[in-house]
Design a protein around this nucleic acid. Structure first.
Lengths: 237, 237
DNA sequence: TTATGTGAAGGATTTCACAGCG
DNA sequence: CGCTGTGAAATCCTTCACATAA
């Protein structure tokens, strides 16, 4: 991510204001979300304290990395004991900006869009689906997972009315860039892109891409590697 | 730990130590899948040659990184010209192990599972969905997206009969570890995990996790950062 | 001349290992 | 004593810059 710059293009030094977290690396941010999930499970089981070792195991990382990650938020552990589940949950939530209510628009109500609309994880983690949008006349007006599908022509108005800043893009690749441009023009500043194309956006907009086919291809690579290793092993014996 | 290479770009088999002979970095593998997607689009438009600059732009990376990535596969470009779309497509496909036919099992036929079953990207990229499995009696035997849902009790037999090595896990978090264990026991060595929990697997099994809620939380963090930057900017003016 | 391929430099991330607090 | 928090080391990844080949 690019550093903040002032009008003259100079890099603004990190403002070390009291109570503010230092700049958090991208890799850490991605893992904080995972830690939050594990903490939620612990809380459901009425566990109030957890060590870095236990939390790290639950999140699939090693304990040194977890402690380093948490150190970016400040010092919220108790030496010789561990972390308080409630306190840590709150600190991570605050860092991720989850204390602010966020409305999300879901554009594209095909197979994937419908599944995403019904995904319980969104609501339970504090995201409100404020609108389902699609271009197909036969879908507009119907109810999907309890939401009424609205015409994508209303995109601008819906984004403004609902104060939407985050959009989930689940449209076909061919129209992804066009829809993306309209979202940005309407004021959306974060996009979760499920379309199998790279969309280009202005500097101030963040995009994260989820490419299902790519994930399988990466696994395929490792399958290949394992098969090759097995052959080598067999040849050497 | 960069590998020595000969003139043809092949990795020279060096140390006798039979550790992991990984010549292509993980970060590169992830991007190769993206490059492949862009190349496919170019081929559809009957474009036969592409420069590193153009291909990089299409994939959303800079050209130096693209060239470095491709250099791990060997030297398949033409200096002063660029890359042949067909040749490069084949080389990347070969590296990702996509020339081998791979059968995939999809476990969990809920909202998300059904959407994934209908996802065209899987088939078009060479992955065959060989089985849909679920535990719900009311689903078993029904047809979803053209596939007959089979009972998860048959998991072992199905995996063996179809020669399945990759599984997509789209079950609730509470049963994810249990189903995962059964998949591994049946012989699956790669898992794409959509359940919102971290599953633990033996050394020889690869897991990739897709966490939809986490993706939104990461975007939320950046929304927060942008909001804070806007406030700072306003205060400084 | 043009655009690739790649050492080397520069950053970012992860791991190590241990000081220091509770 | 046990476990966190963190400099320092190690590793991994990206960018730079230019020799090199078509």
């Amino acid at each position: 991510m690019s550093q903040p710059r002032n009008v003259r293009g100079q890099v603004v030094p990190d403002a070390p204001r009291a109570g503010e977290a230092r700049s958090v690396p991208d890799a850490t941010v991605a893992r904080l979300a995972t830690y939050l999930g594990v903490l939620t499970l612990l809380a459901e089981r009425a566990i109030t304290t957890v060590s870095s070792e236990e939390l790290a195991t639950g999140a699939g990382v090693n304990s040194a990395m977890l402690r380093k990650d948490l150190s970016y938020l400040g010092s919220y552990g108790i030496r010789g004991v561990g972390y308080d589940v409630g306190i840590l949950t709150r600190q991570i939530s605050r860092t991720l900006g989850l204390t602010v209510h966020r409305s999300v628009a879901l554009v594209g109500v095909g197979n994937l869009g419908q599944a995403l609309a019904g995904y319980a994880g969104f609501a339970s983690r504090g995201f409100r689906i404020a609108a389902l949008l699609d271009a197909a006349p036969e879908l507009v007006g119907t109810t999907v997972q309890g939401f009424t599908v609205r015409d994508v022509a209303e995109l601008d108005r819906v984004v403004a009315e609902e104060g939407i800043t985050i959009a989930v893009l689940a449209v076909p690749g061919k129209v992804a860039q066009e829809v993306c441009d309209r979202l940005v023009a309407a004021g959306v500043t974060s996009i979760l892109n499920f379309a199998p194309v790279v969309v280009s956006v202005p500097e101030h907009v963040d995009v994260r891409k989820v490419d299902l086919a790519a994930e399988l291809q990466i696994l395929s690579f490792h399958e290949n590697r394992k098969a090759a290793a097995a052959l080598t092993k067999a040849a050497n014996s």
